[in-house]
Computed example of a mutant assay.
Amino acid sequence: MLAAYAARFSPDDPLTGLEVGERPEPVAAEHWTVVDVRASALNHHDLWSLRGVGLRAEQLPMVLGTDAAGVTPDGREVLLHGVIGGGLGHGVGPDEPRTLLSERYPGTLAERVAVPTYNLVDKPAELSFVEAACLPTAWLTAYRMLFVNGGATPGQRVLVQGAGGGVATAAVLLGAAAGLEVLVTSRDEDRRAQALELGAAGAFETGARVPRADVVLETVGRATWSHSIRSVRPGGRVVVAGATSGDADAAELQRIFFQEITVVGTTMGSREDLQHLVAFLARTGVRPLVDSTFPLARARDGLARLAAGAQFGKVVLEV
């Protein structure tokens, strides 16, 4: 089958480790299902894998990808929850540590992928395969950041750092639909304008003074961390789900403890969170913002767009 996979690591130029070619067909173990992939969204996780983060050399070649929507052998249209193990059992031992697809088991940038049957979530007819493929990583992360770990409720103010990425655009669309006052930051004027069109209540240059937020969503890291800590209200929450610009130089611990700020980490979400997210979209009409689509054979072009930071919304591969 055709797949996009990490053949080698390159910390400085990750795309040099990418190959698109034939890989063995997946085999369904007991309590697993092989899914025919129709669409798979790209994530920064794929680029980190190509850099060698979260993988060992002896695991190569490894099929990339954590997101997918497709069809089971009995014709069921599904999207995939990409978290395996972590005490869940369900197709793996209960003591197996939590990993994401493409870390221990081959990922979704392929014509077919094997996953625990438990990880399948019904795709509603209202969502296309491309739209559904956007949900299991970026949109699920945004949902959990806002409503589970962030505890945001209608009328509260949320600051989203770094408009334009998959998590950020999801947070704007979800937050606005849920009655939150969503503020965003970006260095790019066009991205700030696009965020306002999506429903953001305010858009600011990165680092600019903003009204204090009840919840701050942080996925950028070093470039915005200090601003996040200074922009959350006393007693508020900073929810962290990434560090695309690297780890913060200083933790700002004095401000965190003195103002009783809660810092919470998030990695994707549970299968139940994904089901709730899917229902939210089906009922509200909110849809993922798709930046661009590429055929699987052009996975390199899609990942290059992601690596350059040129996207606004999700980049998706279609099979």
Rank of each mutant, 00 (worst) to 15 (best):
A176W: 07
V220W: 01
S40F: 02
H81I: 13
S226V: 12
P73V: 06
H227N: 11
V290G: 03
G175Q: 14
V78K: 06
D249H: 10
T99W: 07
G265W: 09
A6K: 05
I229F: 08
D291M: 02
P11Q: 08
L146N: 11
S102K: 01
L15I: 11
L306E: 01
D12W: 01
T141P: 07
A304F: 01
E25S: 14
S40K: 03
Q311M: 00
T169Q: 06
A213G: 03
A279P: 00
W48Y: 14
E272L: 12
T185C: 09
A41D: 02
D122E: 15
L303R: 00
V34S: 00
L101A: 08
A142N: 13
T33A: 05
V220C: 03
A241M: 07
G265P: 08
A193Y: 04
G309S: 03
Q161E: 12
L50Q: 05
D122S: 14
E260P: 00
G285S: 09
M62Q: 14
L135F: 08
V115N: 03
L100A: 06
A177D: 10
V316M: 03
G86D: 12
A251Y: 11
P124Q: 15
P116W: 07
P136A: 13
Y105I: 08
R305T: 05
R222A: 14
T224E: 05
A39L: 04
R237E: 10
P73F: 09
R56D: 14
G17S: 08
A251S: 10
F9N: 06
V158Y: 09
T137D: 12
A241L: 06
V240E: 08
I229Q: 06
K314W: 01
T169V: 11
F204K: 02
L100E: 03
G70T: 11
V232E: 10
V78C: 09
R233Q: 14
